[in-house]
């Protein structure tokens, strides 16, 4: 289907965009990459009266390191994260492992990370990573700018703390320490669909014991979820030798953490081809495997550092 008619404003500055968003009483949508918005407009599930195009706002185009954070402007496309060099250390690795799961190259050359936060789809990889890393969402509205922690930002499918007259200008992701390993795994039916489940994990290991673990879940609830109960189960645990082979032993601590994430942290919503029982199974398995990937990544980083010494 074709989109229904709408008014269009191509803002040149954040102030212009905010003014346009707040200037009328009707339904407005922000257009950045448009790979979700225009899709939804074509499916006529979204029918804005006004589209505010922010693609010509130069100040939103950049990415920078500030105070230990990677600050990602609202016009940074997914494709920018395809190289692990996008950010120093494990963060760049995590982002590059996640981004390949987002659709495919022509979508990634338009869509934006910040747009994913604005859209707040429960299966979004970026939103799950934001929750995992305690990212901060920076918004500008008629009353000035404000920041909201990702953990508080998401309220449900396509619902967030962003008010209709606010524009998300950037997302800040904290850089990760060199002694942290990262993992990202996604389970889906083909290359062309949303994740049934995706998991992001980081593991920090001190003297062979887990000193920090973060686990984020995509599409495991009506919003991205931090698997805190599963993280607690790992605190202080001795990581030991990593199991080999395709299947994680049931009695391994990562498998245990996976079951906790599935039972206590997740609140899966049934979909065609993935009912709640199956989703919990996938969460348990995928969390275990993602932790294993993060542990292997941590070991590899350690080996590089020790080799360098």
């Amino acid at each position: 289907m074709k989109p229904a008619p709408f008014d269009y404003v191509a803002a040149r500055t954040v102030a212009e965009a905010v003014e346009a968003l707040g200037g009328t009483g009707h339904k407005a949508q922000v257009l950045a990459g448009g790979q979700s918005l225009i899709l939804e407009m074509r499916l006529q599930r979204v029918r804005p009266d006004l589209v505010v195009d922010i693609n010509r706002i130069r100040e939103l185009g950049g990415m920078s390191i500030e105070d230990g954070d990677l600050r990602v402007g609202a016009l940074v496309r997914h494709t920018a994260f395809e190289s692990a060099e996008v950010a120093p250390g494990p963060l760049g690795t995590l982002l590059s492992r996640a981004v390949v799961n987002i659709a495919h190259p022509p979508i990634r050359s338009r869509g934006t990370m910040v747009g994913s936060f604005g859209w707040a789809h429960p299966a979004s990889e970026w939103c799950a990573i934001g929750v995992t890393l305690e990212a901060v969402v920076e918004m500008t509205g008629p009353d000035g700018t404000r920041s909201v922690a990702a953990g508080d930002y998401f309220l449900g499918p396509h619902r967030s703390e962003r008010r209709p007259m606010e524009l998300i200008t950037s997302v800040r992701l904290p850089l990760l320490r060199e002694d942290t390993g990262v993992g990202f795994l996604e389970h889906r039916r083909t290359g062309f669909c949303f994740a049934q489940v995706a998991v992001a994990a980081t593991l920090t290991v001190t003297d062979g014991a887990i000193s920090g673990a973060r686990i984020g879940l995509a599409n495991c609830a009506d919003r991205p979820v931090r698997a805190r109960a599963a993280e607690r189960s790992l605190a202080g645990a001795d990581i030991g030798p990593l199991p080999e082979g395709a299947r994680l032993p049931d009695d391994h601590l990562f498998a245990h953490a996976g079951r906790i994430a599935a039972q206590e942290d997740a609140a899966p919503v049934a979909e065609p081809y993935a009912d709640v029982e199956y989703k919990r199974q996938v969460i348990a398995v995928l969390v275990g495997r993602t932790l294993l990937e993060a542990a292997a990544d941590q070991r590899a980083r350690l080996a590089v550092r020790e080799g360098r010494r």
């Binding site: 083909t190 062309f192 669909c193």
Partner: peptide, 28 residues
């Protein structure tokens, strides 16, 4: 991969088109 599911009143769950009805891609 390919199949059609229906909702309770007999309408196919295909509102998202090729994101719901999954044809094989090169990756498969």
């Amino acid at each position: 991969y390919e199949g059609i599911t229906f909702d309770d009143v007999g309408v196919p769950c295909l509102a998202s088109g090729f994101l719901d009805y999954l044809l094989p891609t090169f990756a498969e």
